[in-house]
Write a protein that binds this DNA or RNA. Structure first.
Lengths: 109, 109
DNA sequence: GTTTGCAATCGTAAATTTACGATAAACGAA
DNA sequence: TTCGTTTATCGTAAATTTACGATTGCAAAC
């Protein structure tokens, strides 16, 4: 596009969109679910579980980290990933807010 | 990318990703909130409320419709948009499921 | 210090997204 | 029928996303 106009939306809208965008790929959803299920969350294990190359998984992890949903901790030669508690709390707040704001009723014309 | 590998993920993961992707732009979040707030949901009013051109708003509406989150009904020369009750129920189910599945606890290494 | 193994980054290519103006299509009104 | 209003679509351009192999960087082990 010619120019981004994101700055014209509210902070909450942008944050929610950023989080939703991070969730907007099945690989990243799968990664989050794997991180939630296992205690161990080493990058290499994720690669084994996913139908993607190491570099692609690493890229998805980077995006989840950029969105604040995941954090990584160096553990020797490995990196241990896990859900970022603060970021996920914010995601929970924003997504929950949207679910509350858009009630499950038909208000169509 | 060379090849899409979405088919290697579960149906639920793909559906959730599709919904999240649709929510992954502040304009679309804003549109959904406007549709929830107002009863009237004519396309032209959305254009007036948003810092985007008519064609761009129409394109965002098309994506929301493709994701099943919104439905449009022709009303004379106008089109009346509203939240799609069935699609939003599915979104609620999948997002709610993710919120439940990833508890707000730090399980990091 | 050298090697080994794991993960991040680089370089690249193809597909998709975003945005806009211009045009077309659809409908009611004159 | 013709005109004006409203919305969708087309055409286009720039930016971003997705994916992979190859390379680099890093930390422990030897």
């Amino acid at each position: 596009m010619a120019v981004h106009k994101r700055e014209q939306f509210t902070e909450a809208e942008q944050q929610l969109a950023t989080i939703a965008k991070a969730l907007g790929h099945p690989a990243r959803v799968a990664i989050l679910k794997l991180l939630a299920k296992r205690q161990a969350c080493v990058c290499g294990e994720l690669v084994l579980e996913l139908p993607l190359s190491q570099s692609t998984v690493s890229q998805h992890l980077k995006e989840l980290k950029a969105a604040g949903l995941v954090q990584g901790e160096v553990d020797g030669p490995r990196v241990c990933y896990c859900i970022d508690p603060a970021g996920w709390a914010r995601a929970r707040q924003l997504l929950g807010g949207l679910l509350a704001e858009l009630p499950n009723t038909n208000n169509c014309c």
